[in-house]
Design a binder for these strands. Structure first.
Lengths: 214, 214
DNA sequence: ATATGTGAATTGATTCACAGCG
DNA sequence: CGCTGTGAATCAATTCACATAT
């Protein structure tokens, strides 16, 4: 398969959310025009994005909402649950542990880790807190696939290395720093302070382009 | 000025963070190679990104850390404070209100809004909670530039329209939906669930590319 | 000698026009 | 006839090579 643009993957996630909304509204069929309107991209773009993965529509009639939704879930790897751990149970880690309906989103929160002995052994937001030294065994025992990295920036690189060492291949990086991981490990940054600074740039002057980001 | 790629703006934010770290470490000079290493991009890319805005280095000697940092802060519009409000004081809104050292990041939290009468009039995480009907006057009174949109997805579009109606031109959108805003208003999405789904895609198979996202 | 700044080449993504199929 | 699917064309971004300045 051709190499898929990362922007395409982001848009597929958006299309899936729109299809879920349509299905909740019991709408049976849709079109690239409708998806494009909702996702705020062109209809060409929608069809091109889908075409990387196959042919899901009916010419002249558009797409079946349940079918296309099922296909997108399959393409995105959301037909099986993913086991998640939180690394760093500070403010943000705790807020994420409290996040409602994780299971509904195909992700299961299995464990959390913190270097503070006062937190280890406690049960916060529905998840047990373990010592950082227990990572290897907990990751193996719960088949953890993905970690939320919610430690302070200066601790992020070392924490990432512990996670990778334990066998984790997916990291959602909330720390405001670029982390360095070996080949085969995937990092998705989630940095609202960076988003805020980009907003400052666009507000302050610069080009007249309104829609930014992924 | 040429139209600046959004990816360049994202990288400038990263370079600025690196320069701040270097300055904290009292390192006086640096080079495109060092910045590239830290930001995990090529040195060509660093120089090209900077070249959109001017010439900041000395051939043969690299860049002065304080000078380049000052220039990047100016380019990104961070030489003046930005006034921020939070729209939606649920879990996430409250967590953001509690976020430490906002001022240190050149952003001042001035007000928050919620539709729940039980929250209005309270003071949460150092910020007053106002009714949604008070947006116009509070935005004018505190010269609010940017809003954090932290309402549920189904309320996001209407909330965004209230913010835009009140004169806000920058929205950091934490709701997992695409919002539609008029020309001249800037939206930066911050959607960790979307990041999680992209991770599922990359983990599940797909191309062997490890570094993703902005 | 060394590291920046930049036009040219390349690679990649988006847009387009229309062929293909129901 | 309508809307999808897709090669070709356009547009944008990145990479490269090297001229340039100190």
């Amino acid at each position: 398969m051709r190499n898929i643009p990362t922007a395409t993957v982001s848009r597929l996630v958006t299309y899936l959310r729109i299809l879920t909304d349509l299905e909740d509204a019991e709408i049976k069929r849709t079109s690239s025009d409708v998806l494009a309107e909702e996702a705020q991209v062109s209809a060409f773009q929608v069809r091109k994005d889908l075409a990387y993965f196959g042919r899901f529509g009916t010419r002249g009639a558009g797409y079946s909402v349940p079918t296309l939704r099922r296909e997108l879930r399959r393409i995105l790897g959301l037909t099986r649950p993913w086991n998640v751990a939180i690394m760093g149970m500070g403010r943000l880690g705790q807020a994420l542990a409290d996040y409602p309906n994780f299971d509904q989103y195909d992700f299961l929160l299995k464990a959390s880790f913190d270097s503070d002995p006062a937190k280890v052994g406690r049960h916060i937001g529905g998840v047990d807190v373990y010592a950082v030294d227990e990572i290897d065994e907990r990751v193996a025992a719960s088949s953890i696939d993905i970690a939320f990295l919610t430690v302070p920036a200066q601790a992020a690189q070392e924490a990432a290395e512990r996670l990778v060492g334990a066998g984790i291949r997916g990291i959602l990086n909330f720390a405001p720093t670029v982390i360095n991981v070996p080949s085969g490990v995937f990092v998705e940054p989630v940095d609202f302070v960076a988003g805020l600074k980009r907003l400052a740039y666009y507000l302050q002057g610069a080009p007249a382009k309104e829609r930014v980001g992924s």
